[in-house]
Design a protein around this nucleic acid. Structure first.
Lengths: 228, 228
DNA sequence: CGAGCCGTTGATATCACTCAAACTACGTGG
DNA sequence: CCACGTAGTTTGAGTGATATCAACGGCTCG
């Protein structure tokens, strides 16, 4: 059982697998290193397998013909991505680019399918992983269609603060420009909204560090019960 | 092998399963009948299993506090839905309501998980089904974030015409109001866009029947290369 | 110190939502 | 068969949110 196997053992996707299976996964995996700003794959390309981030950050995005960009998700260490083409066949539904120098593993389709067929627990984990992503998408669609930018931002900040455990301190893990892309809005709009929020005493902004000063108000905002 | 088993055999989800397994699924299934407008479940409710539409139509939607509604998807005969809570646990990510009198089957979580564990082929089918939905979501997010309403409508009409096989005739299978909800826009806006498109000679509208008169122009529109 | 990236701010344009009202199609019951 | 109610659809006027264009300030890194 090597380092990679141990790393895999901590991932949700490989939770509860026997060591032998973990080693099998580790043997099938190809390690990939990329510097910041590298294109991992493009929408429409033929896909050969699944990626898992080990270190660094990867953005998954779609580009409009006019150059505008929607970031669908940003993945960090331990998170798998590009599962879709593995099971559905065909090509990548979106593009991927590193936001930092990153180390990833690539699991070829063939190996993964074999592993899944031989281990129902892994298959269940994979189904759970895809389900989590579907749930995230329903929230994302809801946010884009039903909420305005300030509500989306409020929801995002609250979400990050939940996830990180800290009740009122949020350290953005991406540049504000990227955050705008993630929220489906323009950089300038995001800037203005942050301004309004801090003017209104809801938050305090200091670079990438944001303090939530008035959590109840932020929750009302996210729920659409009040406006800025 | 009864009627239900035969119906199941035609579904993508149960493709390639031996008869014995199909019968097992059919035995586990509970048939449900609902009249038009019935609420199947609400977002946040505890979920017990998977639904498959046999006849009729079901909309999956999210509601904003102010009453506005985003339809995430509309499912018809043969399509499964509400898989997410089965594998991820917990509750429904959205609500479901029948748009017509409908007959559905309900597969309890327990039975489904057992079947999946015992049959890798079924698990692979399920992974493929979830992947297809993820792919659809990426397109939906892209459309909402990057495209304007006329582009979304054009893309939708072209998509339906592809799917139905008819090159230039589209028969809407939902009311225009529902279509607006599906495209993430207001009913009035959709009406105006249809007006503009037919004024511009791109389409002809007659109730729910829409003829695509200028397909190249519609494709340019959908791609964002021209405007209305 | 200059170049480039990131972020902010202002002015303007426009898309699409809201509100309000009327009009159509359709099925039901009198 | 017609009157009526309901659901669906259309149109108009007004408004608001956000994208876009443009310019500038600050920070970092070579």
């Amino acid at each position: 059982m090597n380092d990679l196997s141990r790393f895999l053992a901590d991932m949700a996707l490989f939770q509860g697998l026997p060591d032998a299976q973990l080693d099998a996964v580790a043997r099938a995996a190809v390690t990939v290193e990329r510097t910041k700003g590298a294109l991992l794959f493009s929408e429409g390309e033929e896909a050969g397998g699944l990626y898992v981030a080990l270190a660094g950050k990867v953005k998954i995005f779609k580009t409009a013909p006019d150059g505008r960009e929607m970031i669908i998700h940003i993945y960090g260490p331990g998170e798998p991505f590009a599962e879709v083409p593995v099971f559905e066949g065909g090509n990548f539904p979106a593009s991927a680019e590193t936001l930092e120098d990153s180390r990833l593993i690539f699991l070829p389709r063939r190996s993964l399918v074999d592993l899944l067929a031989s281990d129902p627990a892994l298959a269940m984990n994979m189904l759970a992983a895809l389900s989590r992503k579907l749930r995230r998408f329903t929230v994302q669609v809801e946010n884009l269609a039903l909420k305005e930018s300030p509500q989306r931002l409020a929801a995002y900040l609250l979400d990050v603060s939940e996830r990180s455990g800290k009740a009122s301190e949020v350290e953005l893990d991406v540049a504000k420009g990227h955050l705008a892309g993630l929220l489906g809005t323009a950089q300038e709009t995001l800037s203005r909204i942050l301004r309004k929020m801090s003017d209104g005493g809801l938050i305090a902004v200091s670079g990438r560090r944001i303090s939530i000063l008035d959590r109840p108000a932020m929750e009302d905002l996210a729920a659409g019960e009040i406006r800025l």
